[in-house]
């Protein structure tokens, strides 16, 4: 789904002593089917940026085009159109487990499809399907979401968005606070969903995730776009100027190069990639 940002500015608390420019003229175009990572330090405006895509925020100036939906500063949008947009654009917030409120897991997950006008039976079917996807079996359906563990709650919350079958999936720090295994499991699921044709946006400051999963990376710094392009190109830059770290494997590779090992230049995504590269370098 094409998404275009045209000179978008967003100001929090305009005309008060708390005035704060969160976005300072963002021009962006998303067209191709790429898993896009949006990175930046805390308070850089990355979360503000993505909240424009499902019209939770209206730009102070400029506009955002999402397919044929126009999110401008003042244009009248009908409630129905907004619902239509939010059905297409699913947003998983940071710590999504805070959004759980129903008495059973099944009810909570079918909440979104029901809101988007899916009949009850079908919504529950979709909920079951989504729960299967995140790896929760039938035994969870009738349990209360509040008695689950943190990781399970997160899964239920994510299923609650997936059940609505959005065309665009925006993930705001989806792995924050998860243990490494659960974190990998979750990200692999999103990768899978992406490969099935959903546009995925990943908001994060974990560069390891970017190295491993992203096809395109956008760095936001002080409400402006500081970098837009291939992750590999970004990792060759000095990331400290954006208060970001290089991914572990790139740091490791750099340290090896510094000590005299000539690594073949290639796309490093996983530890296995790095291991292969080292092996090749040794054989030469």
């Amino acid at each position: 789904m094409p998404i275009i940002f045209k000179d978008v500015k967003y100001v929090y608390g305009a005309k008060t002593p708390f005035e704060y420019d969160a976005l300072n003229g963002i021009d962006l175009t998303f067209e191709g089917h790429k898993l896009t990572a949006i990175v930046g330090k805390t308070g850089s405006g990355k979360s503000t940026l993505v909240q424009h895509i499902n019209a939770l925020l209206r730009p102070t100036s400029g506009e955002v085009l999402i397919d044929d939906f126009v999110n401008g500063p003042k244009n009248k949008i009908k409630a129905k159109e907004i619902k239509e947009l939010r059905k297409k654009v699913g947003l998983v917030f940071q710590f999504p487990e805070y959004q759980l409120f129903q008495e059973t897991v099944e009810k909570d997950v079918s909440f979104a499809p029901k809101n988007f006008g899916v009949p009850r039976e079908e919504a529950i079917e979709k909920a079951h399907e989504a729960l299967q996807r995140v790896g929760l079996d039938e035994s969870f359906y009738s349990r209360s979401p509040f008695e689950l563990s943190g990781g399970e709650k997160r899964k239920v919350a994510i299923a609650g968005i997936l059940a609505a079958h959005p065309d665009v999936l925006i993930l705001d720090e989806p792995t924050a606070g998860l243990d490494p295994a659960a974190s990998k499991e979750t990200m692999d699921l999103f990768k899978q969903i992406h490969s099935e044709g959903t546009d995925v946006f990943l908001v994060t400051h974990d560069m390891n995730l970017v190295a491993r999963y992203a096809d395109r990376v956008i760095v936001i710094d002080d409400g402006r776009i500081a970098f837009d392009g291939d992750p590999k190109a970004l990792f060759n830059e000095d990331l400290e100027q954006y208060s970001l770290d290089n991914p572990d494997i790139y740091r490791f590779a750099k340290a090896l190069t510094k000590r005299g090992l000539k690594l073949p230049t290639r796309d490093l995504r996983t530890v296995e990639d790095l291991a292969k590269a080292i092996k090749e370098a040794k054989h030469e």
Partner: peptide
């Protein structure tokens, strides 16, 4: 702030707080 955050999360799930 919590109210704001939860409202945003539920609005993304199709809840309409205004109408």
């Amino acid at each position: 702030e919590d109210v704001h955050r939860i409202m945003n999360a539920q609005a993304s799930r199709g809840v309409d707080f205004k109408h």
